[in-house]
Design a binder for these strands. Structure first.
Lengths: 156, 156
DNA sequence: CGCAATTCAATTGCGCACAACTAAATGACG
DNA sequence: CGTCATTTAGTTGTGCGCAATTGAATTGCG
């Protein structure tokens, strides 16, 4: 035979690892967001939190729990992050009166106002990818499927 | 008109952000790798370093610089990480005699031996994704294109 | 009601990512 | 040859991500 069998070793090659490409792409996004968000005084994860809050009707805010579900983050990450957002005057954190365990996060005036300046960000990002919108859409759908499969495998 | 024009605001929706899906997928991988690599005593970034070293012929090792290029990481990340790998006995770090600025990283016996036990990891991962090999291949290729485009945009 | 189990946020501890900086070695060039 | 710019690792500081734990509030159940 002229070709050797596909050794298990081949799958250990760095350039064969989907996770590496994914990780690299994620960090490449991070680099661009860092530049684009500098003006807004946000880090990328903080930006995600603000996106979630901006989606709430009339800026009613969200409990930390719900925020964590949306962003796939736990309180160990969110608590200090939210403190920093509070320190920079973009959100308010207050214990729920109905359930003293829960902390509700609301954007402040400044937090709501920031949305105006954020609308340009996704456009800049989309342009930078060089991908068509439906191509992005397709990629996003695949990634979501992937995440779901991986989460199931990790827990199961 | 029955439908409003696509507001810029729509692009601020969390579920429209490709970067969010990417980030979430990347962390979902992290969770699964954490489980699979626990036995090997490696974190996921440490595993990537070992993959890079295992690829070198006769385990000649790599200078930190080259390692950083392959993994898209700088010395601020690699230096402490390599120290930990050295502390767990998997790699050796030694100043190059030819160029005293450079530090060459080589797998130890234990580091080379670990490869045997690592071959199962990619298989487990592939199975967990629920994707066909060529589908993974396709996704990987798109992500690499994405990374390249983003890096260009960030620097340019 | 009273007590155990659960829920929720916060904290601690560790490792990674990255910017900014330092220090040492090397290379380029007049 | 000497000086200055560049290259290479390492260090410092900040923030994220996550496991494990704590403590307080709530819920469930006998």
């Amino acid at each position: 035979m002229t070709s050797t069998r596909p050794a298990a070793e081949d799958f250990l090659r760095l350039d064969r690892q989907i996770c590496f490409s994914l990780n690299a792409a994620s960090r490449a996004f991070g680099g661009l967001y860092r530049v684009l968000l500098k003006d807004l005084g946000l880090t990328y994860p903080q930006y995600l939190v603000m996106l979630a809050l901006w989606e709430e009707p009339e800026s009613e805010g969200l409990p930390v729990k719900r925020l964590g579900e949306r962003l796939r983050l736990d309180s160990g990450t969110l608590s200090p992050l939210l403190k920093r957002l509070e320190a920079s005057g973009l959100v308010r954190r207050e214990r729920s009166a109905r359930d003293e365990r829960s902390v509700n996060v609301t954007p402040t005036e400044a937090g709501v106002a920031l949305k105006e300046r954020a609308v340009e960000v996704p456009r800049s990002i989309a342009r930078a990818t060089g991908f068509e919108l439906d191509e992005i859409e397709d990629l996003r759908e695949r990634l979501n499927r992937l995440t779901e499969a991986l989460d199931t495998a990790t827990l199961g």
